[in-house]
Design a protein around this nucleic acid. Structure first.
Lengths: 211, 211, 211, 211
DNA sequence: TATGAATGAGCGTTCATTCAT
DNA sequence: TATGAATGAACGCTCATTCAT
């Protein structure tokens, strides 16, 4: 029998970690994959905000209950999908050279910016999940934010930036400006200026070396 | 004659201003006030998240239809109330002396910070409403954010801060850090440090004069 | 001052007849006409079933209350308009020659058939109003049905029809088949055959002279 | 295994028949029965016109969502109940001897006449539902009208009636007079004469053998 | 007469989540 | 694991009609 030990730990649903000894069955994995694929299809058609559990299970050809046997709730599925995409982006970022200018830095962040602004609803979910509600509930999105912080810190340490502040604090600041730029993007009062441009402006000031 | 020309005009409900020639009736104002008062009572008892349209209506002693004749939906009422409270705070801030240190600045922002973090739900509503989806949907919350920006700009201009950046840009940065601090507040991983402290750290770096 | 004694008696609204001695003012007539015109416009746009009192008063440029000062209720307005149109048709019928064949008779009824089947809702209203609920509530539709009966009786008496039954009873039968044909028209199960054809079939049997 | 294959299939709700391979669960049937029973109770107390969806739900002890999972809307429930009762009557009629006189025929129709005239509201619903708006919307009431036609045709064929017209056409005529008699019943102007008497008059003429 | 804000009971809907099988 | 009927609180909405001014 072909079994496999997967990293994803279904016990999350229970709220505590119990390292399972029982092997995960093929069927389980297949059902999970079917659900995720179905969800991605539905999102492609109706957007993230238009995702309905009903439609996902229908398309996946499983029962409603099965959905909730695999994901604690709809948010967990969204977390998985959105976090997955962001994780991919951060993986890409890790393989890039350390940016040496604000413009270079921002252009590295553009794909992320595009994704996070694709839908108001996505931004909301990310905001909600970026900080996990409980330690054992760190989902893919929260994880990816951790990754991002590491990457940014790493870049800050090796770039021509101000040195009068911790790299991590500066990295957090970049995240703050990212959010701000996104929030303003969804705000009619400021819709004129493109996000990248605004982000550059902020970061020029934020990272400017103090002479 | 018992009618009066007031500044508030019912066309707000429609989302656009049309300067009406007909005066708003006293009765209309009274009903509106009754609804708002009732809503505030309910919030006092059950919190913002516990506000139920039915209860408001019941408490105000008006019909449900009347509610929706005054507010497009529950969110509009919440926008009115939350935006109103924030507006009051900004009015207070305007009457204060211009803060001369980061600590002073942050302590001016404490009431706002307290209010915005009083309930996760409040933060969500503010986030949702702060950026109006369309120009004609700018409600009290979105308006108050504009006020805040003005005040902060005003303060920046007259404080001992860095001068190598526009006051408005610096003000927007403060908003960004405010948002960041609040987002982290609702995040278990970072809940150790108080919001004010974290905000001070950010602003020290953000506003630090470049020598 | 130009006054006029109109036939329509507003006291209907009160539920009893009181022959008013006071002259009806010009203004009253104008408002009434405006309301009727507005209603006809709205019907032209949205159909009889789509008529909303709100829209009528808006288009007429009067207040909601004014509507109900002129018409006991929405049905009264509809009665007026629908009954008016049917009355016109019956007036036309009176000026025609007495039909001498079932086909001729049915073709005289075609305009009526067309009108009554223009909308399911119209048929419903007619059915509801054709028999007045109370003697003092005989509205235009009920009146016109009385007219129709007279005309049909008149025709029956002078046509080559069966003589073993009262002309009035035969006339009532024609009305019954008219309704039946309309009811079947709105019924998917029988939608194949045109109304006129079906009516001819019924009447050939109903009016067939007994030799 | 506690499931069963029954004739009724839930697809009725969807408006079209799809022969389902999956059996309907016992639970589903029970809930449906509970709802129908509750509805009948409420009707017994408050009449058909006094039926409130909320009350049915409450009495049945199920959630409101469940109601609408079983019936598209309140009308569908009414259709089911009224159509059911009429169906029962027609089943009874089928087991009777073929009536040989107009009086006998009418007396067979009396229960139906009583039921259809028990409430103005019932008559309205029947009228509304008797002609289905679309082929896929043929509900119990519309179905029962089909049954009625068959029975009447069957009777006509074997009775001492006129033979110069199709049995089905004559049957349709009986339906027409039934409708007429009911319509007049709800009309104050004609309320003197009992329905049966009037129906006899019409049918004597309608079914009279042509010598 | 005219006004128009207020009425108000009820409907249909939503949809993530649960739980008995 | 899988199933899918059931949950259920709340929302938004309808819209003819009333009534105090």
């Amino acid at each position: 029998m072909t079994t496999v030990n997967i990293k994803f730990d279904r016990s999350q649903k229970l709220g505590y970690r119990c390292f399972m000894t029982k092997p995960v069955q093929q069927r389980t994995l297949k059902t999970r994959a079917k659900l995720l694929a179905a969800a991605r299809d539905v999102i492609a058609e109706h957007g993230f905000g238009g995702l309905r559990a009903d439609q996902v299970v229908k398309r996946a050809g499983v029962a409603k209950g099965t959905f909730f046997a695999h994901f604690a709730d709809k948010d967990a599925l969204l977390d998985e999908i959105i976090g997955g995409q962001m994780g991919d982006m951060f993986r890409d970022m890790q393989n890039r050279e350390v940016p040496k200018s604000v413009e270079a830095l921002v252009s590295e962040l553009v794909p992320l910016l595009r994704f996070m602004s694709c839908e108001r609803y996505v931004f909301d979910v990310i905001l909600r999940k970026s900080g996990a509600a409980a330690c054992d509930a760190i989902g893919p999105i929260a994880m990816s934010f951790g990754q991002q912080l590491e990457i940014l810190s790493h870049w800050i340490e090796r770039g021509p930036w101000r040195t009068d502040a911790d790299a991590e604090l500066l990295a957090e600041g970049i995240q703050a400006f990212l959010l701000q730029v996104l929030a303003l993007h969804f705000c009619a009062l400021h819709s004129g200026k493109p996000m990248e441009e605004r982000l550059v402006e902020y970061l020029l000031v934020w990272l400017k070396p103090v002479t």
